[in-house]
Lab assay of single mutants.
Amino acid sequence: MQIFVKTATGKTITLEVEPSDTIENVKAKIQDKEGIPPDQQRLAFAGKQLEDGRTLSDYNIQKESTLHLALR
């Protein structure tokens, strides 16, 4: 499925993911596309910060959802 990640600079990244993917996997995909190390990424959805060990389906993130990326 496709999801979107909006960066602090307003850029939107499109990612191909599975509901079973962990947040860690998603951060690795962002690193592949943007070169941002996962340990510098903070992802949020619906106002909640997402934890590495959880999956997209844990957070009820569905196709075409938009996550927000902040850098630490």
Rank of each mutant, 00 (worst) to 15 (best):
I36M: 12
G47V: 02
M1Q: 04
I30W: 01
V17D: 00
S57W: 13
D21L: 11
L71K: 13
K63R: 11
T14G: 11
I23V: 13
I30P: 00
G10F: 06
K29T: 03
Y59D: 02
K63S: 13
Q2N: 08
K48E: 06
G47I: 02
T66L: 10
D39R: 09
F4W: 12
G35T: 06
S57H: 15
H68C: 04
A44I: 07
E51S: 06
S65Y: 14
V26G: 00
I13Y: 11
L50R: 00
A28S: 05
D21W: 13
L71T: 11
G10K: 03
I23S: 02
I13R: 02
L69P: 01
I3W: 00
V26S: 01
P19E: 11
I13N: 01
D32W: 08
V5H: 00
T22M: 07
P37A: 15
T22W: 07
T14D: 11
P37C: 04
I13D: 01
E51P: 03
G53N: 13
T9A: 14
L43T: 01
R54I: 12
L69W: 02
R72N: 13
Q49W: 05
T7N: 07
D52C: 03
V26H: 00
T9I: 06
K27N: 02
I61A: 02
E64T: 06
Q40F: 06
A70M: 13
M1A: 03
E51D: 11
E18A: 06
F45D: 02
M1D: 03
A70D: 14
K48T: 09
R54C: 03
L71Q: 10
A44L: 09
K63M: 13
V17R: 00
A44D: 14
D39F: 08
I61P: 01
H68K: 15
L71M: 05
S65C: 03
H68A: 05
A46I: 10
Y59K: 01
L71E: 15
N60H: 10
I13P: 00
D32L: 14
A44K: 07
L69E: 01
L50H: 00
Y59M: 05
G10S: 09
R54V: 12
F4S: 07
S57Q: 11
I36L: 06
K27C: 02
R54H: 13
I3E: 00
A46P: 02
Q40D: 15
Q62R: 06
E16I: 14
P38D: 06
A70Q: 05
Q62W: 14
L56R: 00
L71P: 06
L71A: 10
A28T: 10
S57D: 12
E18G: 11
E24C: 04
T12C: 03
T66M: 12
K29W: 06
G10P: 04
L67F: 05
R42D: 14
G10T: 04
T66Q: 09
S20M: 14
Q49T: 04
Q41P: 01
G53V: 14
K29L: 07
E51C: 04
L43Q: 00
F4H: 06
K33W: 08
D39Y: 08
G47N: 07
E16V: 09
T7C: 03
K6W: 11
D32P: 02
F4P: 01
L71H: 13
E16Y: 11
E64C: 04
R42K: 08
D32G: 12
L50T: 02
D52K: 04
T66R: 05
Q40Y: 07
P37K: 09
T55Q: 15
K48C: 04
L56H: 00
L50F: 02
H68M: 08
Q31F: 12
A28N: 13
G10H: 14
K63D: 11
R42E: 13
R42W: 05
D21H: 11
I23R: 01
A44C: 04
S65N: 15
R54E: 06
A8R: 07
A8I: 15
L50M: 10
V5S: 01
I36V: 10
K63F: 10
A8P: 09
T22R: 09
D58H: 07
R42M: 13
K11L: 07
E18P: 10
A44R: 14
D21M: 07
Q40G: 12
Q2F: 11
T14E: 14
R54F: 14
K33P: 02
K48G: 07
S20P: 03
D32I: 14
K33I: 11
V5G: 01
E64A: 10
P38R: 15
T22E: 04
T7I: 10
A70L: 06
I61H: 01
G10C: 03
I13F: 05
I30K: 00
A8Q: 11
S57N: 06
L15R: 00
T12R: 06
L69G: 02
T66Y: 08
L43I: 11
A28V: 10
R72C: 04
H68Q: 15
T9N: 15
Q2M: 13
I61E: 00
E64V: 04
Q2R: 05
Q41R: 01
Q41W: 06
F45W: 08
E24M: 10
L69C: 03
D32A: 14
M1L: 11
L50Q: 01
T55D: 04
L69D: 01
P38Q: 08
T7L: 13
K48F: 09
Q31D: 11
T12V: 13
K63T: 09
A70F: 07
S20Y: 14
L43A: 01
I3T: 01
T12S: 08
A44P: 00
I61V: 15
E64M: 15
L69N: 01
S57K: 13
K48Y: 15
D58N: 05
L43C: 01
E51I: 09
V5P: 00
Q31I: 02
K11M: 06
K48V: 12
E24W: 12
P19W: 06
Q31C: 04
Q49F: 09
K48P: 02
E24T: 10
S57C: 03
I3C: 02
D52W: 05
I30L: 14
K33D: 07
H68L: 13
A28E: 07
T9R: 13
T22P: 05
I36W: 09
E24S: 11
P38G: 06
R54M: 06
A8C: 04
D39L: 07
S20N: 10
